[in-house]
Design a protein around this nucleic acid. Structure first.
Lengths: 143, 143
DNA sequence: GTTGAATAGTTGCAATTTGCAACTGAACCG
DNA sequence: CGGTTCAGTTGCAAATTGCAACTATTCAAC
């Protein structure tokens, strides 16, 4: 049957899942962060079927995560570039990466200036860094 | 056709997607963080079909994200509780929530002790907090 | 302890999605 | 101009999804 969609859901996680909660979409975004931009790069890099890739790229463009940009090396082929909204998905990709990390990590998040590795952490209002264990979710308080 | 699986993939994001990159799984995990534990709570809360929920819970238990615990209020019904590994998914859920947040937020991450809200941020080795814009992914450096 | 309702699933079926493979049409290379 | 790469499109078989109806425990009351 038709897949349930969450676009109008009140929960932001649900809406995010609606856009990006699909096996391929997040991997395409991850590849984009590594520097891939062309259809063929995504296709061979991920081993995804071409019709699926076509569909996902179209949907990600429609969702405002990617945009088609005219060129990069002057060729007439279009390329897919992350939008601002798309680049804001970096914490999601990094969080997933930190969760399942083992020996073979194909990428590391680093400070763009110093090139030194960074971590994703919780920070309280007064600047303290918190262990995830010390964080909980409160349902719906003040909105 | 059979869905492509990434369980043996080198990339941790891919492996994470294999477990949790499914429309329902992450929402189930989110609900667990809010405090839901019973089959029926997940079912009515998410509006997911019962056979799908059965399947997802089974897979999440097999993946070590949930475990079935004997009781909570003495009843003989089993409940589903997040394991340590499952609780470590909190940054993923929060990252997705931060990405798609708008007015109606059904939950907020807060400091367990003070109850005050916290944010997920990037932190460099020397303790500075970085804007996601100042972070990039370097592919496969040292392995 | 039997009846009835709630809980936690299972089963069957039709619509949708997925993925492989083969095909098409530009764009680039010589 | 001819061949090759790039970027898809099309067709089809198998898997997944979701609804609805059904079953089996468990709880609550009588």
């Amino acid at each position: 049957m038709k897949r349930t969609r969450f676009a109008g859901d009140a929960c932001p996680v649900a809406r995010a899942v609606d856009v990006v909660g699909d096996w391929w979409s997040l991997l395409i975004v991850r590849d984009a962060f590594i520097g891939r931009r062309r259809f063929g790069e995504f296709q061979t890099g991920l081993g995804v079927a071409k019709n699926i890739l076509t569909d996902r790229l179209r949907k990600l463009v429609a969702a405002g995560v990617f945009e088609q940009v005219p060129a990069a090396d002057g060729s007439k082929h279009k390329e897919y570039a992350l939008t601002e909204k798309g680049r804001e998905l970096l914490p999601v990709v990094v969080a997933l990466g930190q969760w399942a990390t083992c020996d073979a990590t194909p990428f590391t998040p680093v400070d763009r200036e110093t090139g030194r590795p960074v971590r994703l952490v919780f920070r309280s209002a007064d600047g303290r860094t918190l262990d995830p264990r010390d964080v909980r979710l409160t349902p719906a308080e003040t909105g």
